[in-house]
Nucleic acid binder design. Structure first.
Lengths: 148, 148
DNA sequence: GTGTAAATGAGAATCATTCTTATCTTTAAG
DNA sequence: CTTAAAGATAAGAATGATTCTCATTTACAC
């Protein structure tokens, strides 16, 4: 995962008609350099650790704008709060397997499933914009530990 | 949609090791007799209309138990609150198309998609329990009104 | 009918998120 | 390099959904 320079991030923000504030640059860099699915509070804490002055409100507002600009994806794993992941340089959309025991998230992509989704939309004269496909269950490691 | 008697609902609750309280019977009957996807507050208001003494806490607690018992499904349409639907007598699981303009929810079932989900789980040695598949977009009526 | 575990009502508490407002930055223009 | 205006920010208050607390009530096995 190549670290992106501040200059490049500024460029990205400006291309999306967002002022290149230090808070936004730091937030984008954080999501750029991790494969974690952080929630807003975790992002706030990480930015604070990095000596950034930032408020929760700014984290939420920036995330909202970044999601609108499709630079970031907003994910709901059914925990009562949202998680976010970087979307730049991702060529493929992906869905998630979520382990209900350990919380691990496995990403997957299945072309046939995507095709079926389009078929369903066509059948119902529905114009899709986004979708969420989350499969909840138990991962192999957790079953190995305790088959239950 | 055949109305189920209180006696039958009592029976159902007892079969699931839940005390057959009047609040639970009324809640279950409400969900049984509608195809709406109510949220907790709407359920609370409906039960009040029906002259039932019930508190919000009881609505939430009962729903939680009913979901555990798989008598009710908990749905997240990305509105920041959960919705619930009856699950009894439904032989088929189904997924949802959600119109981002008018909020309409269209239910669908696609066997091939379900098969692909199982295939993905197998591939990742993942034991699935439930899944959510929500496609967001614009329904035909909204596009007819304003193609955009 | 009684006792007891379970369920409930009312409102307080919590948690994620959004709003408010006064104060800063960014950036385009001189 | 200043400057001004639009846009962003910090801090904390407000909101809204959901959960918790605890004293009281109810279901139901006996």
């Amino acid at each position: 995962m190549a670290t992106v320079s501040n200059q490049e991030l500024k460029q990205v923000l400006r291309e999306h008609e967002m002022k290149a504030t230090s808070q936004r640059i730091a937030l984008l860099k954080l999501l750029n350099n991790t494969s974690e699915h952080y929630d807003a509070e975790e992002i706030y804490i990480e930015l604070r650790k990095l000596q950034k002055t930032v408020s929760r409100a700014t984290v939420y507002r920036s995330l909202e704008t970044l999601v609108e600009q499709q630079l970031v994806s907003k994910l709901d794993f059914g925990e009562g709060r949202m998680r976010y992941e970087n979307r730049q340089e991702r060529d493929e959309h992906h869905d998630h397997l979520i382990c209900e025991r350990c919380g691990k998230v496995i990403e997957f992509f299945n072309l046939e499933m995507e095709a079926q989704q389009l078929a369903v939309c066509e059948k119902h004269d529905f114009l899709p914009s986004t979708h969420t496909m989350h499969i909840f269950g138990t991962c192999i490691e957790c079953r190995a530990t305790n088959p239950n």
